[in-house]
């Protein structure tokens, strides 16, 4: 069956390769620095002990003070899951590096986050709106929309 890796465990392993990336952790998730998301993603996927090949979902939550990106990950061979999170600050033009290069599955979800939440992903090959039309004013899922 499936085991959920605790945040502390994950943070421990991530620190070996990327000492600066890990900011914080609790028992379910680990927070990483927004600039290092793609590096962390690469490390998570390529580390044979972690082997997170499968990206379940990329979510963005608007906590008004900051945005939070939540990555739900699964390893098919090792059969464990993990949650990686990252706080993105700034409301005008928040940006985060894209993980499309690591997981193609993030493609549409990152476009959707840009469309509805307004977080721009650098390095994404096709950073266009997906649900709404180009030129739509604002990002509807933000808490200050409407």
């Amino acid at each position: 069956m499936l085991t959920a890796l605790s945040g502390a465990d994950l943070a421990q392993r991530l620190r070996d390769t990327l000492p600066d990336a890990v900011l914080d952790w609790n028992d379910s998730a680990v927070w990483v620095a927004p600039d290092s998301i793609s590096a962390v993603a690469g490390a998570l996927r390529d580390n044979p002990e972690l082997d997170f090949q499968f990206l379940n979902a990329v979510s963005a939550v608007d906590f008004v003070a900051h945005f939070e990106l939540v990555y739900h990950l699964t390893s098919i061979s090792k059969r464990h899951t993990a949650v990686v999170r990252s706080r993105v600050y700034g409301r005008e033009e928040p940006t985060a590096p894209s993980v499309v290069g690591v997981w193609r599955g993030a493609d549409f979800q990152e476009r959707e986050i840009w469309d509805l939440m307004g977080i721009r992903f650098t390095g994404h090959p096709n950073m266009k709106r997906i649900m709404l039309w180009e030129g739509f004013d604002g990002h509807p899922l933000r808490k200050d929309f409407l």
Partner: peptide, 29 residues
């Protein structure tokens, strides 16, 4: 496929954020 609901609560009567991980969208990748 995998249908996921990511719910965040702020203690109110409705979810603070409800993200739907829809299999159809992601399968289109």
């Amino acid at each position: 496929g995998e249908l996921g609901f990511f719910l965040v609560s702020d203690g109110g009567i409705s979810p603070y954020r409800c993200k739907i991980r829809s299999p159809s969208l992601i399968n289109l990748t």
